[in-house]
Design a protein around this nucleic acid. Structure first.
Lengths: 211, 211
DNA sequence: GATGAACGCTACGATACGGTATCGTTGTGT
DNA sequence: ACACAACGATACCGTATCGTAGCGTTCATC
């Protein structure tokens, strides 16, 4: 007698037993797959992330891949959520101008990374034509934005910066040159460039003497 | 006896008789195909440009498509070379500041166009992983750059701008905010935004009184 | 109106890819 | 040592896509 409870094929997005103690083999195969997918993305773009290629490169069987993610798209979403750049921390004890300069240099290092340069156009493109990626990219921004705004607000409070320094337009004025320099490659994104951009921003937003 | 001259199957990149007077049907089918490819690019990204889809949408037969381009990739290259934004002209009779403001507004209109917003990430991505697209994108830049530099140089000569206004870094400072605003969409790219960016650039590059 | 280039139609082949299914093997936790 | 979850290998199916081939049709030009 066929008991249906034995037959249901566990179709799901494969939670794979996220039990209190995880089987080490699970994380091993998962990270091997993600790492292979990342390498393929860097080398050949998003289209290079095929299930066969990921399985072959990672040394993990394709069947195991589908035990981690139900579809190939879920793997890609997971990948982009996994390799997004680390938050840039801002030291509140530093003077505002120095904190901004440090932020600029760290931002330059982030966007100057080839991984970022390759990931960003892919993310922008998928954000346009797929629905799963819009939130990933916005989350990435908002985190950076919040940390930056805190420092800028401190500069406003201390009378160093104008009151509009935290506006969207000002945010674009500061970050935009980094983005462009990295994506288009017209100029190398090094510390000197970072300082130039940051200083240009600060000068343009310096609080004038009372009128 | 098989005369080889009769057998060679015209395999080439299909020049299609670019005779003194072109057959109007050639340009008609060609532009119908390019237009369909453009629409597909806007709607679904580069991957949506399939030969079958282009043929179906344009109403032109697939065999005719291959009479214009030897491969699908050649069509895509031709497309990106065809829809690149028009040069922004700069009136030399205007005062430098006004000319720059006008340039900013025109640039805002260009990069604010959905077609540009969709084409650019695709172009950046293909530039990374294919060889045919690197030159297209650089040509696009250099043209704009030359026209802009002419105005900036005039500003330097007239004593309005600092001597480094035509440097790569300064170029990035002016254009970067436009690029970022358009690609990431944090702020709407309108005339007000353009004026803010342009004025910020001018203020940061204004020639100081002699020290 | 005759000629031939350009075109439309359609079927086909080859390949790549996403995803499924099966079954034997390994190794982890008890 | 034992049970079972996780894994590996492989074959397979359906489909999408690029590109080719053949042949009949239309239309611009002389």
């Amino acid at each position: 007698m066929d008991n249906e409870a034995d037959v249901i094929p566990v179709r799901q997005a494969s939670p794979l037993r996220c039990a209190p103690v995880v089987n080490p083999r699970i994380t091993r195969s998962r990270e091997a797959l993600l790492n292979a997918a990342r390498e393929l993305l860097l080398q050949g773009g998003p289209d290079a992330i095929t299930v066969d290629a990921v399985a072959a490169r990672s040394g993990v069987a394709k069947s195991t891949l589908y035990r981690h993610w139900a579809t190939r798209d879920e793997l890609v979403v997971d990948l982009f959520d996994h390799i997004k750049p680390p938050m840039i921390e801002l030291d509140p004890s530093l003077p505002v101008v120095d904190a901004l300069r440090l932020f600029g240099r760290q931002l330059a290092a982030t966007v100057g990374d080839p991984e970022w340069q390759c990931m960003t156009p892919a993310l922008l493109l998928m954000k346009l034509h797929q629905n799963n990626f819009a939130e990933i990219e916005t989350r990435m921004q908002e985190q950076q934005r919040a940390a930056l705004d805190a420092v800028l607000q401190r500069g406003i409070d201390e009378g160093v910066l104008r009151a509009d320094a935290t506006s969207d337009t000002s945010f674009t004025l500061l970050i935009g040159p980094f983005i462009m320099a990295s994506l288009l490659g017209v100029v190398t994104v090094d510390d000197a460039f970072a300082d130039a951009v940051t200083d240009h921003f600060i000068e343009g937003h310096r609080a004038r003497a009372v009128v």
